[in-house]
Design a binder for these strands. Structure first.
Lengths: 218, 218
DNA sequence: ATGCTTTTTAAAGTGAAACTAAACTACTAA
DNA sequence: TTAGTAGTTTAGTTTCACTTTAAAAAGCAT
C-alpha cells in the first residue's frame, strides 16, 4: 500500500463508495488527475481486493477497502485532536499536517495515540472518529442552509477544506456553539447569523459546509 | 527532498560527514545498497548543494547538508521523547516509529512538539537533541568498555539499534543509572556490572554500545 | 610497479504514477 | 432508433526516483 493508493481509497470513501458506485470522473476531480489515470489505478486496487470495479459502471469499496479507508480516516482525525488540543494548531493547520501523518502512522501508534487522547469521539472539525473495529457513530445533522430562519440550533461539524477552515475560524465559528439564522439573503446571498449572541455574516457557500443539529420538526 | 535522500544525508552525518570525508563504501554498507548506487545519489546531492563531493575522495556535508541532517535528527529525537514519555513506547519501538515520522514532519510540527515536550535536552536513548539553529550540546562520554574495573560511573547514552535496545531494556539498563564494572572477562567476554546495586551481565558487544561519564583521571 | 581495494562509468531495469490521443459505452432526448 | 454527448477505457508514452550488474579506472600500500 502506498500513500497514493491510500488517497484513492479515501477519495472513494468520501464520495460515498461505502454504499454506492462512484464514477471515475468524481475521483479524477477530487484527486486532480486525468480520468485515464484513475482507470489505471482502479485496476490495481481491484487486483488488490480493495474495491469492486466494473468497467464503465464505477467502483465501490470492498470490506477490506472500507477497513483501510476507515483506519486512514481514524488516524487522520486522532492526529487532528492531538495537534489542536496539545500543540495549539489552528483548524486548517491541523488538517494539513494530519494529511501527512496519516500515511505513515502504524496501527500501534494510532492505538496509543487514541489512548493518550482519552478515546475522543470527535475530531476538532466535528466528524466522528471511527473505532478501531471500523464502527462509526453517526448522528444525523443537516447543513446550516437547511435550517429554518429563526430556529435555534448548534454547530456540530464543518467540512475540512483549508481555505474554508481559515475563513470559518476567523469568523469565530466553533464546534458546539449555538446558532440561529437571522437572515438568509436570496439568490445564494450571505447568511446573517446569531452566534452565541454575536452577529456574524458568512457566505452561502460557507454555510453549505457547516452542519447543525437536525431540528425536531424535520 | 525525498525520504531516501534524507536517509543518505543522515548516514553521511552519522559517519562523521560533518568533519571528515566519508567513503562511499561505508555509506553503501550503512544503507545496504550497492556502491554504484551511492555514487549516483551523491551526484544528485552534490547538484542540490547538500554535500561536497570529489570523485574518488569521498563526501562531506555542506552547511546546508548539515542543517538538513540535523533537523532530521532533531525531529527524530523529539518524536522519541513524545512516544516514550506520553505513549508508553519501549526504546526500540520509539526508535522505529520515529524513523517513519521524521521524514514527514514539517518544521512547524517540530517546533510545536518541542514546546509541548518542554524543550527536552536529550532523547530517551541519551543523545542530545539539536537546537533549531543546529547547535548541539555535546558532553564528553566514553564507551563502557573503556571504564576501568571498579570505578563508579553513570550510563548516559546507548546506541540506537533495534535489537540492542530490546536487549538492553530487558537487562534493566536505564539512562542515568549508576554503574560499576565488577568483572570484564578476557577475550571480549561478558561484562559483569553493578547496576544500582543489582548484578547484571551483558555481552562485550553490548557494552561497547553503552556510553558512560568520562571519569576524571582520563 | 604490482596487486588489492575502492570508486566510477555505462547501460539497463524496476516500480509507481501520470499523461495524451483515440476509441469505446451507455444513457438520453429528439 | 438514432444521434449526441458525457463519461470511460485503451494504447502508447513519459517521467521520476532509485537501483542494479559488469567492466573500467583510480588510488594506495608494500
Amino acid at each position: 500500500m502506498t500513500p497514493n493508493k491510500e488517497d484513492y481509497l479515501k477519495a472513494i470513501y468520501k464520495l460515498g463508495g461505502m454504499e454506492e458506485l462512484v464514477g471515475n470522473k468524481q475521483i479524477a476531480e477530487t484527486l486532480q488527475i486525468a480520468p485515464a489515470s484513475v482507470t489505471e489505478m482502479l485496476g490495481k486496487l481491484k487486483r488488490e481486493g480493495l474495491i469492486h470495479y466494473e468497467p464503465y459502471k464505477g467502483s465501490r469499496l470492498t470490506s477490506e477497502g472500507i477497513r483501510s479507508a476507515i483506519l486512514l480516516v481514524r488516524g487522520h482525525r486522532l492526529w487532528e485532536v492531538f495537534l489542536m488540543r496539545h500543540l495549539g494548531y489552528s483548524w486548517s493547520e491541523a488538517h494539513e499536517d494530519a494529511e501527512l501523518l496519516e500515511h505513515i502512522t502504524p496501527s500501534r501508534l494510532t492505538a496509543r495515540l487514541d489512548q493518550f487522547l482519552n478515546y475522543p469521539a470527535y475530531c476538532p472539525h466535528g466528524s466522528a472518529i471511527p473505532h478501531p473495529d471500523g464502527h462509526i457513530n453517526l448522528i444525523p445533522l443537516q447543513p446550516l442552509i437547511h435550517l429554518s430562519v429563526g430556529t435555534d440550533s448548534h454547530i456540530r461539524r464543518v467540512t475540512e477544506e483549508t481555505e474554508l477552515l481559515d475563513y470559518l475560524q476567523e469568523s469565530g465559528i466553533v464546534i458546539g456553539c449555538s446558532v440561529r439564522i437571522i437572515e438568509a439573503a436570496p439568490y445564494e446571498g450571505p447568511f446573517t447569523l446569531d452566534l452565541e449572541g454575536r452577529r456574524v455574516q458568512i457566505s452561502y457557500k460557507a454555510a453549505s459546509q457547516i452542519f447543525v443539529d437536525r431540528t425536531e420538526e424535520l
